[in-house]
Write a protein that binds this DNA or RNA. Structure first.
Lengths: 149, 149
DNA sequence: GCGCAATATTTGCTATGTTAAATATATTCT
DNA sequence: AGAATATATTTAACATAGCAAATATTGCGC
C-alpha cells in the first residue's frame, strides 16, 4: 500500500489537496471577472455584496447586514462609510433601540446594480456553463455543510 | 412553474446561493480553528502557508512560492520579509539569474511546523469527520474545475 | 432610580489583498 | 556592443480582514 496521505501518518496532507487553499484558489478564479465588471464603477467586491444584500432584503441593521454580506462588523462599518460618501446607501439609528443602525440602499445604489445586471448574469452563466449546474448545486450543498464545523 | 431563480430572468440569484459568498463562508469556518492553532506562535495563516509550501517543496524562487501558497507576489514579498525577521526563512538571489530570489525554510521554521503538526492533523480529522471523506474529495475535484474558468 | 452587566457598533492597529508603477537584471535585435 | 524589450521582484497606495479595546444604549436587579 502506498500511504501517500494517511491522516494518521507523520505528515500533513499535501498543500495541493488542502481545503483552505482550494477554497481560495477557486474563489480567486470566480472573483476575477466580477472585479473587472465592477472596476469601472469604482465599486469593490465587498461594496457590491453590501449593495446586493440591501437590495435583496431591504433596509436592515448593521449586524444582520454584516452577517448576510459575510463581512465582519468592523469591515462592514467602514465599507458602509465609504458607500455613504458615495451616496449609495443611507444609515440612521433605530428609533426603538438607538444602539442599532439601520442601513438602506438608495436609488443611486440600485442604479449601480441595475447597470451591472446583465454583466453579472453573463458571468454567472459562464460559470454554470463551465462547471455544470449539477456540480454547482453539489458544491453549494457541500459548502453549506461547513457551517456545522 | 415557479421561476425563483431563472438565469434568463430579471434578477440575480439570491445571495444565499451565491458561489463567491458560499466560498467565503466555508473558508471562514475552516480557518477559524487554524488561526486559533497558530495564534500562540504569532504566525498568521499566510505565513503558515508559506512555511508549509517551503517544507513540502524545498527552496524555490519567489514566483513559484507565491503560486503554490496561493498568494499574490506583493503579499508574498511582505510576508517573506516578516518571516525573515523572525528567522523562519532565508532569501538570497539566484546565482544564475539575479532577478530571481530563492527562498528556503530554516530549522526554526521547520520547528514551528513540527510543533503544530498534531494540532493541524486533529483539525483536518475533524473536518473529515463532519463533512465526510467522500464529500471532501468531491469538493476538491469540483473546486479544481474552477481553474478552467 | 442607580449601578452594572449585556448588547450593538465603532475605532485603533497590524497584516493581507489588489492594482499600478518602479527597479533590477536578462535577453534579443541590429 | 548598445538600445529596446521582456522577465522577476519589490514598492506604493488604498481597501479589507481580523482582533482587541473603546463607546453608546439598553435592560436588570436591588
Amino acid at each position: 500500500m502506498t500511504e501517500t496521505n494517511d491522516s494518521a501518518g507523520r505528515a500533513l496532507p499535501s498543500t495541493r489537496r488542502s481545503i483552505p487553499i482550494a477554497l481560495i484558489r477557486a474563489r480567486e478564479k470566480v472573483m476575477t471577472p466580477i472585479r473587472e465588471m465592477l472596476a469601472d464603477s469604482g465599486i469593490t467586491e465587498q461594496q457590491w455584496r453590501i449593495l446586493r444584500v440591501l437590495e435583496e432584503y431591504g433596509a436592515q441593521d448593521a449586524s444582520t447586514l454584516a452577517d448576510r454580506a459575510c463581512l465582519l462588523l468592523p469591515s462592514q462599518t467602514r465599507i458602509v462609510q465609504t458607500l455613504l460618501e458615495k451616496g449609495l446607501v443611507t444609515r440612521q439609528a433605530d428609533e426603538k433601540d438607538r444602539r442599532k443602525q439601520t442601513v438602506a440602499i438608495t436609488d443611486a445604489g440600485r442604479a449601480i446594480i441595475e447597470d451591472k445586471l446583465d454583466d453579472a448574469k453573463a458571468i454567472a452563466a459562464r460559470i454554470e456553463a463551465v462547471i455544470g449546474r449539477e456540480k454547482l448545486t453539489q458544491l453549494l450543498d457541500i459548502l453549506e455543510d461547513f457551517q456545522k464545523l
